[in-house]
Amino acid sequence: MKKLGLIVNPIAGMGGRVGLKGTDGVVKRALELGALPRAPQRAKKALEVLKEISNEIEIVTYSGDMGEREAKECGFKTKIITAVENEFTTSQDTINAARKMLEERVDLILFAGGDGTARDIYNAVKEEMVVLGIPAGVKIHSPVYAQSPLRAGKLAKQYLQGKVKLIKEVEVLDIDERAYRNGNVKTRLYGYLNIPFEKRYVQNRKAGTPLSEKAAQNAISLDIIDNMIEDTLYIIGPGSTTRPIMQNLNLPYTLLGVDLIYNKQIVGLDVTEKELLKHISDKPSKLIITPIGGQGYLFGRGNQQISPEVIKQVGKDNIIVIATKEKISNLQGKPFLVDTGDIKIDEMLNGYIRVITGYKEQMIYPIKT
């Protein structure tokens, strides 16, 4: 029988929809703003796939929301290695859990969280174990994560069955969340973890924006501005590709937040999911987003304020994707990805979408859930 270590960081991703761009150090604030746990549900989606081989697996996990509840609800044989004593779990809880699993010599550590969680796993086990992340955080730059909870479950299943043999050493990346909330991205390499590798299941690391793209981004912004419709709300997603739109309109902006424009004037800066839903309830709306460089995600990474309900109300036909030709080229033919947390919304987005790549230049590009 295989031993599967399961670690769930129950507070991971809670800051996303309420506009906090992360959860490190702001759990109480996120709860005050109405944030709900995200990681437990995403962990269960991965475990649902593994239920097909539940008679071949024993799950080794922590108590309560750090894995016990999710494993038992999915019907797995479960071994609890210790209990969590704090009201809110901490990074030390994750480190302790991973170290215990190292002692237990589990075959694979499957963990749900974000880049901070991956960093904690690294601090605990370094390169001594094989691990795999279920994406549940706000910002996920590290390639230790699968593309979605479903793909995490599929890859874990195939690895435990011996169908995936390749183990790859990948980067553990994280950013300074305080600087991130102020619009500055400071990414640091912490080390490396070993993951079971199957290209179709794991995500790439996030790529930076080269200076050569600035002119192309500016051309895209001018196309957007020239075609703005009066009395229509424009939701401007985060990223350096959308920033020139605000700059050319001489408007304030939040580089890593979601801003709102109406008749070329700011009506909301760094808005939350709740504020977005209020604004779009009585106005025709369009959503402008750009894929994450190197990964290709349109939704589910760094823009959780644009929730499934927001996407549903705006509608796929009113989503405007912008990306330079270089950003598209760097995807090497791989489709855009979506991981909203709502299967029906992901399926709605599946297919093809128009992408603005320059001034009066467009292309059609695939989306795959």
Score class of each variant (00 low, 15 high):
K3W: 04
I7V: 13
I7Y: 00
V8L: 09
P10K: 01
G13W: 05
R17C: 14
R17T: 15
G22T: 04
G22R: 01
K28P: 08
R29Q: 14
R38Q: 15
Q41F: 11
L47Y: 04
K51T: 09
E52R: 10
N55C: 06
E56H: 11
T61K: 07
S63E: 06
G64V: 11
M66S: 10
K72Q: 13
I80Y: 08
F88R: 01
F88L: 10
T89I: 06
L102H: 14
L102N: 12
E104M: 09
A112K: 01
D115S: 07
I134F: 12
S142F: 10
V144R: 06
S148F: 00
A156M: 13
G162V: 09
V164L: 02
K165I: 12
K165G: 04
I167N: 10
V172H: 05
D174M: 04
I175M: 14
D176C: 05
L193C: 11
I195K: 00
Q203P: 05
R205S: 15
A207M: 15
T209W: 01
P210R: 02
S221E: 05
L222P: 08
D226C: 08
E230T: 03
G237T: 09
L251V: 11
Y253M: 05
L255C: 14
G257Q: 11
G257S: 11
V267G: 01
E273K: 02
L277H: 09
K278W: 14
I280G: 02
I292P: 00
G293R: 04
G293C: 12
L298V: 08
N303G: 05
S307C: 03
K325Q: 15
S329K: 13
L331V: 01
Q332W: 08
K344W: 08
D346R: 00
N350D: 13
G351Q: 06
I356P: 00
I356T: 06
I364N: 14
